[in-house]
C-alpha cells in the first residue's frame, strides 16, 4: 500500500508545484529533505537507544512479567472463553503489558504467538474468532503509557513543556480503547 501512497505523494507534489508555479521551492525542498530526515533520525536515535536499554532491564529482571500478572485480572473479562492458564491468555497478557510499557519490539513476538494459539483454538478457520477481534483491536489502539519518542520530538522542536500532553494522551487513548472494545464486544455478540 505504501508503494501507492508514496508515489502518489511525489506525483501530486510535482504536479501541484507546476500548477502553482512553485518549482523553485520544490527543488530546494528536494535538497533540504535529506538533511532534515537525517536530523530527525538522529533526534530519535538518542531516546530510542536509551529507552531500549532501560526497557531491556525491565524485561530481563521480570518487571514486565510482574506487570503482566497485575493486568491479568483486568484482561480476564475480555476473554471469557479462554482458560486463564492457557498459553494463549499468557501471551495476550505479556503482549498487552509490553505495549503499556512502550516495548513495541518485545510486544510483537508475544502478539504473533497469541494469534497462532488463538488460531489453533479456532480450529485453524480462515474467519477471525471473537478473541482475535478483541486482541487485534487492542493492538490497533495505543496503550503506551510513556510516549518517550513523542516527548523528545516535542522538545527538539522547541516545546517549553514536552510532557504537558501526557494526561490528554492518556484520556484520549482510554476513550479510543473503550470505543474499540465496546464495538468489538457488541458486534461479537451479534454473530
Amino acid at each position: 500500500m505504501l508503494n501507492y501512497i508514496w508515489s502518489g505523494l511525489v506525483i501530486i507534489s510535482i504536479t501541484c508545484s507546476i500548477i502553482f508555479g512553485n518549482t523553485s521551492n520544490l527543488s530546494k525542498a528536494l535538497i533540504d529533505s535529506g538533511a532534515s530526515s537525517i536530523e530527525l533520525i538522529f533526534t530519535m536515535a538518542g531516546i530510542m537507544c536509551l529507552w531500549s536499554g532501560i526497557m531491556k532491564i525491565a524485561v530481563e529482571s521480570g518487571f514486565t512479567s510482574a506487570i503482566a500478572k497485575l493486568f491479568a485480572p483486568l484482561l480476564r473479562p475480555l476473554f471469557p472463553s479462554l482458560d486463564k492458564n492457557s498459553a494463549a491468555f499468557k501471551s495476550i497478557t505479556m503482549n498487552i503489558s509490553a505495549n503499556l510499557l512502550g516495548l513495541g519490539n518485545a510486544a510483537t513476538p508475544f502478539g504473533l504467538k497469541a494469534m497462532e494459539q488463538l488460531h489453533t483454538l479456532n480450529n485453524k478457520s480462515d474467519t477471525a474468532s471473537n478473541e482475535m477481534v478483541i486482541f487485534v483491536v487492542m493492538n490497533t489502539a495505543s496503550l503506551q503509557l510513556l510516549p518517550t519518542t513523542l516527548a523528545t520530538l516535542r522538545q527538539t522542536y522547541g516545546s517549553s513543556a514536552p510532557f504537558e500532553i501526557i494526561v490528554p494522551v492518556w484520556i484520549s487513548s482510554a476513550c479510543a480503547l473503550a470505543v474499540a472494545l465496546i464495538l468489538a464486544c457488541t458486534l461479537n455478540l451479534k454473530k
Binding site: 477471525a128 489502539a141 484520549s172 479510543a176 474499540a180 468489538a184 458486534l187
Partner: peptide, 18 residues
C-alpha cells in the same frame, strides 16, 4: 485469516474517537 469481520470497523472508529 482473511475474514476479519468487524475488526477494521472497530479499529477505525477508535482512531476517529482519538
Amino acid at each position: 485469516v482473511k475474514k476479519i469481520r468487524h475488526t477494521l470497523f472497530a479499529a477505525l472508529m477508535a482512531d476517529f474517537t482519538a
